[in-house]
Design a binder for these strands. Structure first.
Lengths: 208, 208
DNA sequence: GTCTATAAAAGGATAGAC
DNA sequence: GTCTATCCTTTTATAGAC
């Protein structure tokens, strides 16, 4: 019957409600597009009226902000797990990482747009929500460096290369694998360029 | 004083008004974002009231459709001009093309989003507006083939590579050139991968 | 071809009762 | 913490006069 446990339970309940709201917003974003998220529909999905959302979020953009932070936190976690133990061979490791990133990005267009593109004109992530994205890139640099990708420009090139394949996949063949199948070739190209050791991931093939 | 000249003038005037409307929509899209285009503001910019727009376009999405078609037509024209006479050396030609594409894409975020990303949830381009994008890719395949990039997968890789650099530039360094500077390196990497002849575009540099 | 008037809906956000 | 009530704005689109 002490006070603190009650406070804890209240805080937990509050946090759970916040999560419910954000999850409802994700559902709408996935189904109807990021810009189609409305407070009314979010509220309806959690069994509330829209004004009640203001108890938990200061504005609609605050919900987008929570979504942004959550998405990058998830990606950071995926990154940390995937990079905790990588294959020794640099090329194999590069491919494993790329496939992880690719699959995460391609699994959810709305999430990808919120994380990496500027779809909501007046939305700017807060420093707290931005932090996990910085941490992710930091971790990526660290791992790439250990694989022999030690030039900053090469890291930029790697990010662009994988990101470009994701983009093409989402834009031109959503749900398919036309660009995902290019990952081994792309990683070989990249590894060859940097002179990374090891046998090629795929047998070199001629055009005819 | 014949009839047909009058008809012609009317048709010209009508077409000019359509162009004015689309140009006003572009201005708003560039200034406030693609999804912030509203009929009221478009109308205001051309000195009309919003209902009058329906004389020229059946719906708001019809305006987006005209914008989409116009953007790809411009890009097709830029592509045709740039590829009409290319440097003989494959690597130099690749770089020249990439720089043209990159600069066109990076010059206008709203245009890039409308052309290549799915920012407006319920917008689907009409076949007529989609046509110039098909023609552009066709022309690209043709030119790349002549440069020695004759595998379909290599074309996909090229498109992703340049597109990824554009994406990174727009997302992480808008207005800058951090990723544009990587174009020569990226083209060398790509050319090396395909065994294209010619000296590298940039001197090979070590990491230390 | 453009206007006024207006529909009809939906949007984000606030005030104040409970 | 959630509600009702409501504000005020904005949105796309239509009807009908001129």
């Amino acid at each position: 019957m002490s006070v603190l446990p009650n406070r804890d339970r209240q805080a937990e309940r509050r946090e759970a409600t916040r999560r419910e709201i954000v999850e409802a917003a994700w559902e709408i974003a996935r189904a109807e597009g990021l810009s189609s998220v409305t407070l009314r529909e979010v509220a309806a999905r959690v069994g509330m009226r829209s004004p009640s959302l203001y108890t938990h979020f200061a504005s609609k953009n605050a919900i987008y902000d929570a979504m942004f932070g959550e998405a990058w936190s998830e990606f950071l976690q995926v990154t940390l797990e995937r990079t905790a133990s990588l294959p020794k061979a640099p090329r194999v490791a590069l491919l494993a990482m790329s496939e992880t990133f690719f699959d995460f990005a391609v699994a959810d267009l709305a999430r990808f747009q919120l994380m990496n593109q500027r779809v909501i004109p007046d939305f700017q992530p807060s420093p707290e929500s931005y932090a996990p994205s910085v941490a992710t890139l930091e971790r990526l640099r660290e791992v790439l460096d250990r694989l022999g990708v030690d030039q900053p420009e090469a890291v930029d090139l790697y990010v662009s290369l994988v990101g470009g394949l994701v983009d093409s996949q989402l834009a031109n063949d959503p749900g398919g694998d036309r660009w995902r199948r290019l990952l081994p070739r792309a990683m070989d190209m990249f590894a060859d360029h940097l002179g990374l050791p090891g046998p090629p991931l795929r047998s070199t093939q001629r055009s005819t």
